Amino acid sequence: MTTISKDESWQAIDAVRTEVADLIDTLTPDQRLQQSLCGAWTIRDVGAHLSMAALASTTFALKNAVRQGFRFDAIIRESTLAWSRGLSDAEVSGRLRTIVGNRTLAPTTMWRDPLLDALVHAQDIARPLGKSVTPHPEAAATATDWAWERTFGFPFFPARRLRGLRLVATDTDWARGSGKEVHGPVTSLLLLSTGRRTSYDDLTGPGADRARALAGR
């Protein structure tokens, strides 16, 4: 299977940060407020989220963790909304540019976490707008592996959610799971593995319809 190194991962992250910042700068105010693939966040919120791990203070993180009772999903959701409210539209993209080259990790995370975050959230922004961003297939394969492997699959649990399906990438050497095969670009398989709700028109194979049904839940 295709994997990339830690240094290559940071290079991909920086490329995504720059591309997303450039994309956000082209959007109208209404587009920035459009719903992203993340249920609780707008396009603007997702852009803001991508700078939060590298720039938010420990105090900010702890206060939000306490406020949300140390519940993981609530911490991420509400911290991002608070972070986004503190930024102007120009600062959302500006902060992304300032962290190009920044290697700061959020507490308890490893280097593959910001890779997964960057690649998934770039699609969370681009797909609802009908836009495309660079796919980075080898980086996406590494990120998708991490979505399946990190702490028994937490917080996405793809092995459990996609039980009975075998995901097979068509643009790089990557496959996971067992059962009816689902073929598609690894970026779409990454989104499927992380529970994103989107059309998945590019998926084929005997398990594709079931995969689309599971993604709609």
Score class of each variant (00 low, 15 high):
residue 18 T to M: 15
residue 55 L to D: 05
residue 153 G to V: 07
residue 60 F to T: 04
residue 58 T to E: 15
residue 211 A to L: 04
residue 120 V to A: 07
residue 17 R to V: 02
residue 24 I to W: 04
residue 21 A to G: 00
residue 72 F to Y: 15
residue 201 D to F: 05
residue 176 R to K: 15
residue 53 A to C: 13
residue 152 F to T: 10
residue 167 L to Q: 03
residue 45 D to V: 00
residue 16 V to H: 01
residue 140 A to G: 09
residue 95 R to S: 11
residue 164 G to V: 10
residue 208 A to E: 10
residue 162 L to R: 04
residue 95 R to E: 11
residue 102 N to G: 00
residue 75 I to R: 13
residue 8 E to R: 06
residue 140 A to F: 03
residue 1 M to K: 06
residue 193 S to P: 05
residue 161 R to N: 13
residue 51 S to D: 07
residue 15 A to R: 09
residue 28 T to V: 14
residue 165 L to S: 11
residue 63 K to I: 12
residue 65 A to C: 14
residue 15 A to S: 14
residue 158 P to T: 05
residue 189 L to E: 03
residue 204 T to G: 05
residue 120 V to D: 01
residue 117 D to N: 06
residue 81 L to H: 07
residue 34 Q to T: 14
residue 138 E to A: 15
residue 160 R to F: 15
residue 152 F to V: 12
residue 60 F to R: 02
residue 141 A to C: 06
residue 175 A to C: 14
residue 41 W to S: 02
residue 56 A to W: 01
residue 35 Q to I: 01
residue 86 G to C: 11
residue 139 A to P: 00
residue 92 V to Q: 06
residue 202 D to S: 14
residue 142 T to G: 00
residue 21 A to W: 06
residue 84 S to Y: 12
residue 174 W to I: 03
residue 216 G to Y: 13
residue 68 Q to F: 09
residue 99 I to Q: 05
residue 175 A to G: 06
residue 166 R to S: 12
residue 13 I to M: 12
residue 179 G to L: 10
residue 190 L to E: 02
residue 9 S to K: 13
residue 115 L to Y: 10
residue 152 F to M: 14
residue 47 G to I: 00
